[in-house]
């Protein structure tokens, strides 16, 4: 193209100026990255520092709050794990999250396949409807849901979260999957249909493997939502052995007008660990899946 011609004719002078521009761009980039990383990481850093201070130092006003001056203590972590329901909350959160992710994926993959490939009557309207669901905030739903939850006998069990979290995850995940499935060439289905596959086989053998990055992205999304959700457990769970991490950490460690800051921060950091690990390993899929869902939807 034009590039080759231009490069040949202009030659070394241009390359030098490009290098100079590149150097400035690099400096500017690193400078802004450092600023951003400080902005993004100073709160978690402070949480970590606080979680390692003694109660006395946390209550102290004369010391530098950003460093530990009076000795590191792991007391807050120990008492969180030994004396509180934290391990139970952790277990419950894991159970809830696994169930929600599984339900979400089954429901949204099935629906996305039907909506993107099986053009039945009302499919278009339904796709729009799924989209609109995303607009209904949980703060509107949680009060009427009390009665449904109560009628099902699920109030104050973590299974209620398995029931209601999909309302937060399914619409978006279906949307990601519709985007992904639409990007799969139609020739693939045709080939599979010639081979005599039915729709279920085609979905499992052809679509799922091809759309794996999208599926992983949707799973991470569902995971994040059900791991971090606050309002539903706040409203529906009140027994210690049914509690999940977000609400449990707050309610265990704030007693009346007494805040156990060290423990709160320790709890927040421990609660954040599983998502951090998952993102660290699967982020590339997440990015690929989300963006293709968003751009190709």
């Amino acid at each position: 193209m034009a590039t080759a011609v231009a490069e040949a004719s202009v030659g070394a002078g241009l390359r030098a100026s490009l290098t100079r521009n590149r150097r400035w761009a690099l400096i500017a980039s690193y400078a802004s990255l450092i600023v951003f990383v400080i902005f993004f990481l100073f709160p978690p850093y402070y949480m970590l520092i606080t979680s390692l201070k003694t109660n006395k130092e946390i209550a102290e006003l004369s010391t530098n709050p950003w460093i530990i001056e009076k000795g590191i203590t792991f007391q807050h972590y120990f008492s969180l794990l030994m004396d509180t329901g934290f391990p139970i909350y952790f277990r419950n959160t894991i159970i809830v999250t696994i169930c929600v992710v599984a339900i979400t994926m089954v429901v949204s993959i099935l629906a996305a396949y039907a909506l993107s490939r099986l053009k039945f009557w009302g499919a278009g309207v339904l796709a729009t409807g799924v989209f609109l669901t995303y607009l209904v905030p949980d703060s509107l739903l949680f009060i009427p849901l009390f009665e449904i939850v109560g009628a099902l006998g699920l109030l104050d069990t973590y299974w209620v979260l398995v029931l209601v979290y999909p309302t937060l995850t399914v619409p978006f995940c279906t949307w990601i999957m519709i985007g992904y499935f639409s990007s799969i060439p139609k020739e693939l289905d045709e080939a599979a249909l010639i081979d005599g596959a039915n729709h279920m086989q085609m979905l499992i053998k052809v679509f799922v493997p091809v759309a794996l990055p999208g599926i992983i992205a949707a799973m991470i999304f569902a995971f994040t939502v059900s791991w971090a959700s606050f309002l539903y457990p706040l409203a529906y769970i009140f027994t210690e052995d049914q509690m999940v991490l977000t609400v449990g950490t707050v309610t265990t460690l704030i007693k009346g007008d007494v805040f156990h800051w060290g423990g709160l921060m320790a709890g927040a950091l421990l609660a954040a660990a599983p998502p951090v690990i998952i993102y660290a390993f699967l982020m590339d899929y997440y990015i690929a899946g989300l963006t293709s869902g968003a751009t190709k939807g």
Partner: peptide
Amino acid sequence: QAETRAETG
């Protein structure tokens, strides 16, 4: 609120 609306608890 939850218990009175759900009539259980």
